[in-house]
Design a protein around this nucleic acid. Sequence first.
DNA 1: CTACTATATGCAACTTTTTGCATATATAAT
DNA 2: ATTATATATGCAAAAAGTTGCATATAGTAG
Lengths: 178, 178
Amino acid sequence: MSLKHAILVLLETEPGSGYDLLKHFNNSLGYFWNAKHQQIYLQLKKLRDEGLITCDLEKQKGKPDKKIYSITREGEKELAEWLRTPVAPNSVNDALLVKIYGGRMCSPEELIEELDRHAAIHQKTLDKLTAIEQSYLSLKPESREKYRLPYLTLRRGILGENAWLEWAKEARREITKS
Amino acid sequence: MSLKHAILVLLETEPGSGYDLLKHFNNSLGYFWNAKHQQIYLQLKKLRDEGLITCDLEKQKGKPDKKIYSITREGEKELAEWLRTPVAPNSVNDALLVKIYGGRMCSPEELIEELDRHAAIHQKTLDKLTAIEQSYLSLKPESREKYRLPYLTLRRGILGENAWLEWAKEARREITKS
DNA sequence: CTACTATATGCAACTTTTTGCATATATAAT
DNA sequence: ATTATATATGCAAAAAGTTGCATATAGTAG
């Protein structure tokens, strides 16, 4: 669906190899769009076949050649069009909640253990996001301009993770009671 | 993945037809596990093939026969085992955030329009969840016991949607500034 | 000296999910 | 009368995503 557009968004900012993209992705869109590296490489191939991006080889010594992808006019057009089209609301798949919903069949201790495990992961994500926010906020106001919109998505991550952790505290209290 | 387990969780609570399940699902697990009706019917078939659920026909006049599914011993075993196994953290796919991230290429007005559209959807979800919460809270404390764990997942929904709407206000202010 | 991590890709097989169609009846609203 | 909605299922094809493997080098940590 829109992994395709996520890639176009990133390549519109700057060209790069699949690997570059992957790293960039994992520090930005990856926080709210799931994708494995295979998926990204596959999409890059497809996007190239569709002519939405181009690919130039960059020779490197020792390492395999880098394929540097850039967005094309076609790609920009496609992206602009997508931006004008309404998208579906976020879709969530949260196995932990399925577990808790049906948690009667297992011990409170086991639920708490799993909840804590997830809380640790969410805390880690929050820490990363907060660190990114700090580096954004330490930029000079002129430099911030460029990142204004990405910053909004960062905020979404931060508010979301905070809410998650708040909920986890509440849930923990409730489960412990039993 | 765990649509399978989501179905087992619901059938463990009470047997029912695919359609019953679907409605139940849409008012509970559906808030944090995405699935279309086709997927549910398909999974029911698979679960039956695996012997985790059974199916009895219930004749109806006028309408097609209902297939009433129930969980089997095998199914309960499978479910209990799954509950003891750690699950992956929630995965999110949020196209709106991809859009905002790359929103430089479209007008603030268009972004705001889309943001508001999504906000309306989230508000609607929040309203539904709040209504469910109200009916839960109006139960006698003895009757609540049964729904304690599902209620926690409801709380997750409420806190999550509130956070979403808070963020949307913030984002709206920021985008409007430009 | 060895193991691990990072760089840098990608195929093949499989599972999961989505999209679009298809059917048939009952009831409530316009 | 007609239309829409709810009931009640499901197939088939396509798209998307996951899992597991495979390759090859360079640098760093133990």
